[in-house]
């Protein structure tokens, strides 16, 4: 166990923590600042367990934030920044998976699940409204009543 833990630590050493937060980034245009934050929040930090670039204090995250900040200062847009990151680290950095043929399953799968759900619903409803009335059988009802003899409130509570 301990050995395993140590190897885990050894496999990838991370740059040490460094002093920096988003306070250092200023934009003349407040909307640019919001865009900047939105972008780094949707980027996954590569060295941390599961944090965004905005939330991480790992040195690499700081460097990448600086890089993205410089790019924004130079007037590059969100798509260019995403392209910059993806060409180096792959789709892994994006918390919001890009729409492309291999990710169709993620983006259109839910609609299919939704569709299946609706089909199931309508089929059950169709079948139900056609079937004959089969109330609790008399015996079943009797047993139910016996079992949990309810003094006064033997009645539908939720109507």
């Amino acid at each position: 166990m301990r050995v395993f833990f140590l190897t885990l630590l050894l496999i990838v050493s991370l740059p040490s923590l460094n002093a920096a937060t988003l306070a250092e980034y200023s934009f003349e245009n407040p909307s640019q600042g919001e865009d900047f934050r939105a972008i780094i929040e949707e980027m996954r930090c590569l060295v941390c367990q599961n944090e965004s670039l905005a939330g991480s204090n790992a040195e690499l995250a700081v460097d990448l934030r600086n890089e993205i900040y410089d790019m924004m200062k130079q007037g590059q847009n969100k798509d260019e920044i995403i392209e910059f990151m993806v060409s180096r680290y792959g789709d892994f950095v994006l918390y919001n998976p890009p729409l492309k043929p291999t990710t169709y399953a993620i983006w259109f799968g839910p609609l299919i699940v939704f569709l299946i759900g609706s089909v199931v619903l309508f089929r059950i409803l169709k079948r139900k409204s056609r079937t004959q009335e089969t109330e609790l059988s008399a015996e079943e009802q009797q047993r139910l009543n016996n079992l949990l003899k309810q003094s006064t409130d033997n009645r539908d509570v939720n109507q």
């Binding site: 050493s13 690499l60 180096r88």
Partner: peptide, 15 residues
């Protein structure tokens, strides 16, 4: 020193 080339290489940890 600055790690800029490392970023271009997609380095996320050493080694």
């Amino acid at each position: 020193k600055k790690g800029r080339t490392a970023i271009d290489l997609g380095v996320y940890g050493a080694p």
